[in-house]
Amino acid sequence: METIDQIYIKVLYNGKNITADVSKSLMSLGYTDHMSEADTLDITLEDSQGKWQSEWYPEKGATITAQIGILGAEVLDCGIFEIDEIELYGSPDAVNIRCIAAGFKQGQKRTLKSHVHEKKTLSQIVHTIAADLGLKVIGSISNITVERLVQQKKGNLTTLKKLASRYGYTFNVRDQNLIFIKNEELEGKQAVAYFDKTDLISFSLTDRTFGTYSSASIRFHNPEAGSIIEYKTSEGGLPNADDILHLEQSVDSIEQAQQMTKSALREANKMQQSGNISLPGSVVLISGNIISLHRLGRLSGDYLIKSASHTLSSTSGWLVDAEIYKVGGKEELEKQTERNTPKKIKKTAASKF
């Protein structure tokens, strides 16, 4: 485990490098990287001299850019944030600067809007909203037709998040990029690193049946067409589950019903084998990456990182708490011997998504 002396940090405030001042006062830095929510950054500073609460007091809305890593090794670019909240507490005096990813804070992205999309593909809708936000779309999006989508006094980001959930995509905003990637694409990637059970500081993994489903169905009466659309699927269902997931949503076509039903079933079942792990800090431990865990019996295998909370402190160095879920669905029992431990995959940094 790295000590604080081995940790690399770089902090820019409105483009100005304030790393030296931050380092002198740093008690802890916390960066939480989410797949489908806004990333956050917390910087806690010792302030016995009162500088951070007076002449160095940060401006709400100012930008913070941060990088973390190990001296002489790979660096993790946390991205650009806007200061959302400043907290002073004591004693002794300390100031916490709480920031949120800039892509979620900028004004036009939060403005409530009304718009009607008619006879557009899902890809066209996403690209239209992205253009309105001034963002570049990252990801391959389906050309499935959406007959009508009404955005009634809702933020663009809220609308995009709803579309992503409905059609089985991961959605996020990172800097000037709008991420819209199919979940199966993320879950089908190769593992970027291997971790043995002994590499973990702690772990808690659960194999559950509650809240999982064998199949999913939808039935919707379309009043305009005067017809009933029905669809049922077991693709993505679990053989050891008894319940059926019944969707209560409006659909325009059987194609739409198929995609929405399959996506809902996969989403409901993906946390069947899931949990949390704690590890020493690493640049590969970021949301959207696949890591391979071994010597955990039937719960060994590949896991996707749903979120990762990086904490750098003067007492513990760099630690990561990650929320993960298993991908691939394999339940092969490993032989619990050192002789059968697979070779480690080279741990290399990977870009987010």
Rank of each mutant, 00 (worst) to 15 (best):
G211N: 07
L71I: 09
N183E: 13
P223Y: 07
G69M: 02
A102M: 05
A193R: 06
A350Q: 15
A164V: 02
R148W: 10
E224Q: 14
M27Q: 12
S204I: 04
A241R: 06
H221C: 06
N96Q: 08
G79V: 12
I64Y: 07
A62V: 06
D243T: 14
E82T: 12
K335P: 00
G61M: 07
V283W: 00
Q272K: 10
N222P: 08
P280A: 06
N156T: 05
S278C: 08
A38D: 13
E235A: 13
E37N: 15
Y169V: 03
I291F: 00
L312Q: 01
G103H: 01
G275N: 04
I305P: 00
L160C: 06
S214A: 12
C99E: 08
F195T: 00
I68N: 00
A164E: 01
S314Q: 10
Y169Q: 04
G69K: 01
P223V: 04
D302S: 06
I43H: 05
A322N: 01
E331F: 09
A101L: 07
D93L: 09
A268M: 11
S140K: 14
S142I: 07
S278K: 01
A102S: 14
T3L: 12
T40D: 13
T261N: 08
M271K: 13
V146N: 08
G107F: 09
I129S: 03
R219F: 07
G139R: 02
E248T: 15
L293W: 00
Y325R: 08
I254L: 11
D196P: 00
L279A: 00
T111N: 15
T261P: 07
K154R: 11
S314F: 10
E59N: 11
A94N: 15
I43S: 02
L265M: 04
P223K: 05
T212K: 09
T209A: 08
K344L: 12
A66P: 01
T337F: 02
D47F: 03
T65I: 12
V284W: 05
R295N: 01
I138Y: 14
H294Q: 09
S25H: 10
N276C: 10
A193N: 02
I290V: 15
L299T: 07
K154Q: 06
E248L: 11
F210E: 15
W318V: 03
K10Y: 05
Q53L: 14
